[in-house]
Design a protein around this nucleic acid. Structure first.
Lengths: 122, 122
DNA sequence: CTCAGAAATTAGAATCATTCTAATTTTAAA
DNA sequence: TTTAAAATTAGAATGATTCTAATTTCTGAG
C-alpha cells in the first residue's frame, strides 16, 4: 500500500470529512499518476484495519474520518458533518443488550448554523 | 400516490427491514404493472412526510422501517438489522449539545446470532 | 544482486442503487 | 366535461463503488 500512510495522514490531519473523490484529488496533486480505484483500495484497507472510520449518511457519498471515538452531528439540510465528543454510551447500551456490542454509531440530526441562518433570513 | 397506503401497510406490518427492491417485488404481485421508480417515488414521499424511516447502513441498499422511535442492532458480518427499543437518549444528548436536536440515529454493531454460530463452529 | 511470487496499482469496464426525463395516464375539482 | 395538477410508466442517466485483467512494484530467499 504505497499510499496508505499519506492517506491516513490526510484523514488524520484534515478536520473535514473527506470523500474518496476529495482524497483522490488531493493525492493527485502529489502523485499525478494515481487513480481513484487505488484510493478506494487504500481506504478499504485502512478501514478493514480499523485505522480509519467510514461515515455513511443517506444521500451522500461515504466520508472518511479519524478512528478515535466520537459522534456526529449531521445537518438535515445540507448533510454537513461535525464531530462531537459525547460521553461514551457503551456501558449504558451494553447493560440493555444481551449480545455483546462491538461499537456503535451515533448520528444526531440538526440544522447546522449555516443552514439555520439561510432559513431564518427568508 | 396510488400505492402509498399499501406500501405503508407493508412496512408497518412486516417486521423485516425491506429494501425498495423487495417492496417492489411484493407490490408487483398485487399490481403487476407497477414499476420500481413508482415505488421509489412513494417511498420518498412517505419518508418526507415522516411516515416511514429510511435506514442506511454502509455497504447495503437503503431499507425502510416503521417511524416509531427505536434503535438498531446491525450485524457487522452480514448486515442484518434488528430493531431494539432502548431508553430515549434525546434529553441526555441535548444536555451536551448547544444546537437543538431534531432526532438521532443509533446503530449498534454486533455479530448476530446466525453469524456467531457460523464462526464458532469452524 | 537477481529472480520468482506476492501484492499493489492502473485503466477502464461493470455493477448497483437510485434518480431523472419525457410521455402518458389518472385524479380531482371547477 | 374540460382542464390542470399529480402520479405513473419506461427506460435512460447518474454517481459511487467494485471488479477484471494487464502491468508494475515490492519482497525476500537463494
Amino acid at each position: 500500500m504505497r499510499y496508505a500512510n499519506e492517506i491516513l495522514e490526510l484523514i488524520n490531519t484534515s478536520h473535514e470529512h473527506l470523500t474518496a473523490e476529495e482524497i483522490f484529488l488531493r493525492m493527485k496533486e502529489q502523485y499525478p499518476g494515481v487513480v481513484l480505484a487505488t484510493i478506494y483500495n487504500n481506504l478499504n484497507h485502512l478501514h478493514a484495519e480499523g485505522k480509519i472510520r467510514k461515515v455513511t449518511v443517506e444521500g451522500h457519498p461515504d466520508r472518511y474520518d479519524r478512528a478515535t471515538r466520537h459522534d456526529h452531528l449531521v445537518c438535515s439540510k445540507c448533510g454537513d458533518l461535525t464531530d462531537i465528543i459525547l460521553d461514551d454510551f457503551t456501558e449504558q447500551l451494553q447493560s440493555q443488550i444481551r449480545d455483546s456490542i462491538l461499537s456503535y454509531d451515533l448520528q444526531i440530526r440538526y440544522i447546522c448554523p449555516a443552514c439555520r441562518k439561510q432559513t431564518n433570513q427568508k
